[in-house]
Simulated scan of single mutants.
Amino acid sequence: MNMNILVAGATGKTGLHLVQELVDQGHKPTALVRESSDTSALPQGVDLRKGDLTNLQDGVCDGMDAVIFAAGSGGSTGPEMTDKVDRDGAKRLIDLAADAGVKRFVMLSSVGADQSDPTGEMAHYLKAKHEADEHLKASGMTYFILRPVALNNDGRSVRVTLGDEVDISAQASRADVAHVLAEAAMSGSLDGMVHLMQSAGRSLQHV
């Protein structure tokens, strides 16, 4: 069954892999984009829906079967924008998805977001992600939360590891992350789960 899937963060490094994956699988991705977003790299077949995560309006999730949050404020922004996008924007999108009767919400989170009171230089970001994850769990929607380790651009890998066997000092490719997010949204095979993730083995492009 072809699905209507809203993607927040579609123009980002992971998001571009994600929307291409959804198009390749025959689904209908809709990119949630700001007025200022550069959409030139999005593949053909992707619809656009205007929406700013710092000020989401009612109706942005209407007509969607699933929503994937793959957005982020970016490493160069400060704590205020982290709160507006990674915490409050995510929570608002979750609420709007629930109101619209969306069947499934898939969250791109982060390793370390399981902690309610993290420490270290990433503490503020991880706390924001933790609060968004907890809000999703309490939303009543079917959900999947993915918490990858540090991201790279190595392309698809031979093997992806999910769960307790993940080495938190390892890395995960954005292409692999996008593949898992798409699979979670499309199939429901990961419903109700929260998984760490790493890429393992050689990149497919080198095999």
Rank of each mutant, 00 (worst) to 15 (best):
M1I: 15
M1Y: 13
M1V: 15
N4I: 00
N4R: 04
I5D: 00
L6F: 11
L6K: 05
G9M: 07
A10T: 00
A10P: 00
A10F: 00
T11D: 04
K13A: 08
T14H: 07
T14W: 08
G15C: 03
L18Q: 01
L18Y: 05
V19K: 07
Q20F: 09
E21V: 02
V23P: 06
G26N: 14
K28Y: 14
T30H: 09
A31T: 05
A31H: 14
D38Q: 06
D38H: 10
S40P: 15
P43T: 07
P43Y: 14
G45S: 15
G45R: 07
V46S: 01
L48D: 14
L48W: 12
G51Y: 08
Q57E: 09
G59D: 11
C61H: 13
D62V: 11
G63I: 05
M64Q: 03
M64T: 01
M64R: 02
F69C: 14
A70E: 06
A70R: 02
A71V: 00
A71H: 00
G72W: 11
G72V: 09
G75E: 13
T82K: 02
K84G: 13
K84N: 06
V85D: 04
D88G: 11
G89F: 10
G89S: 10
A90R: 03
K91T: 11
K91M: 10
K91V: 11
R92N: 15
L93V: 04
I94Y: 00
D95Y: 13
L96C: 04
A97Q: 07
A97E: 03
G101T: 07
G101P: 08
K103S: 07
F105V: 01
V106P: 00
L108P: 00
S110M: 06
A113D: 07
A113K: 10
D114Q: 15
S116H: 12
P118E: 09
T119D: 15
G120H: 10
M122P: 06
A123H: 04
H124W: 09
H124I: 08
A128E: 01
D133P: 07
D133I: 07
E134K: 08
E134L: 07
E134Q: 12
L136F: 04
K137V: 12
A138N: 12
A138Y: 12
S139G: 12
F144V: 01
F144H: 03
P148G: 05
N152C: 10
N152Y: 10
R156W: 12
R159G: 06
V160Y: 05
G163D: 03
D164F: 11
I168W: 13
S169Y: 14
A170W: 03
A172T: 00
S173M: 12
D176N: 13
V177Y: 03
V180P: 00
M186R: 05
M186H: 08
M186S: 12
S187C: 08
S187F: 11
G188A: 08
D191K: 06
G192W: 01
M193S: 14
M193K: 15
M193W: 12
H195F: 10
H195W: 12
S199R: 03
S203E: 10
L204E: 03
L204S: 02
